[in-house]
């Protein structure tokens, strides 16, 4: 097996999702290359070179690749793919946007969002918001796969693989990047955080979310939200956890004022420990909670704050 991992990065540094994908690749075989395609992306390429157990980093450094536009990147993946049995990308918005286009160019039926690997051609993936797990075998000679990052450990970074330049992108001139509004936060990132405090419609306002943020800071946690909280404008879109938002699996997930709709559970039910704080004892969130507390959240959060304070070590 020879595997190409599509590295996700912002040119200067590598995104942690790449590390999880490399771990998935290691279950398939031990000849693993990581592609870092960008512009002025030596920083990201050097960081990729430290991933333990990879053979090479392929660095494609071209202006047309600066912003990760699928129209320019997919032809590069298409031309590199002939050297590999598998091409893997993270099932993040980056990978989901890019890989199906490359798959279409290669006439391959992609396998999306795998959470397990049974053999080099057989994979497990969640369907129906994680209410069913399908085992699928691919008959395509080449496999293109997006990987659910929370299902695979992050690979270590103790290596020093060679970085080799590659070319082959096109400037399709079909789209141009016109700016971004990224959420800046000192808190850990949702998809890699060890602890997440998440709020739902029960929070009632963005002002009240500040309470959760203070709690999160005490715990060194990231802040997440249900779709209802995002739709109501309490928090930005990138906070959304769920079937159609982010999938997370921290060691501790604290759901506050979230009812536990299947679409929300799809994004967090693989967390190690789940705490539910909700005033409705019938709320479905309690069915997946390890610890449930039936209480008004506006009483509970200050008390939890105080209890953490009192027992802080």
């Amino acid at each position: 097996m020879s595997i190409l991992v599509i590295g996700e990065h912002d040119n200067s540094s590598l995104r942690p999702s790449t590390l999880n994908v490399v771990s998935a690749a290691k279950e398939l075989g031990d000849s693993i290359d990581v592609l870092v395609a960008g512009s002025d992306c030596q920083g990201a390429a050097q960081e990729a070179a430290t991933i333990t157990g990879i053979a090479r980093v392929l660095a494609a450094d071209e202006l047309a690749l600066a912003d990760g536009l699928a129209e320019n990147l997919a032809p590069l993946i298409q031309s590199l793919a002939e050297n590999y049995t598998h091409v893997l990308a993270p099932a993040t918005t980056y990978g989901k946007n890019l890989l199906p286009r490359a798959a279409a160019l290669l006439d391959v039926q992609q396998i999306s969002d795998i959470s397990g690997i049974e053999s080099p051609d057989t994979f497990v993936r969640p369907i129906y918001a994680g209410n069913a797990m399908a085992t699928v075998r691919s008959g395509d000679a080449l496999k293109l796969i997006t990987v659910r990052t929370t299902s695979f450990e992050a690979a270590e970074q103790t290596g020093s693989a060679p970085v080799e330049p590659v070319s082959g992108s096109v400037d399709a001139q079909l789209s141009t990047f016109a700016g971004e509004e990224l959420t800046r936060s000192e808190r850990p990132e949702l998809t890699t955080a060890d602890i997440i405090v998440s709020g739902g419609r029960g929070m009632q306002s963005s002002e009240n979310f500040a309470m959760l943020e203070a709690l999160a800071d005490k715990l060194g946690a990231a802040v997440g939200a249900s779709r209802a909280a995002v739709d109501a404008g309490y928090v930005p879109n990138d906070y959304q956890v769920g079937q159609t938002g982010k999938v997370v699996a921290p060691s501790l997930y604290i759901a506050v004022g979230i009812s536990g709709a299947i679409q929300h559970l799809a994004g967090m039910k693989d967390s190690k420990i789940i705490v539910a704080i909700n005033k409705d004892e019938e709320a479905p969130i309690f069915q997946v909670a390890d610890y449930g507390w039936v209480v008004d959240l506006f009483e509970a959060i200050p008390q939890l704050d105080a209890a953490l304070e009192a027992t802080a070590r």
């Binding site: 391959v108 039926q109 069913a132 085992t135 039910k269 789940i274 610890y291 449930g292 939890l304």
Partner: peptide, 25 residues
């Protein structure tokens, strides 16, 4: 191109417990 070999329920989570105070939690 794909063959679905099987479709199963996801692993269920073990039942949890209720707490009644912040200190207990």
């Amino acid at each position: 191109r794909l063959e679905v070999l099987q479709v199963v329920e996801p692993a269920a989570r073990a039942a949890g417990v209720l707490v009644t105070s912040a200190d207990e939690l």
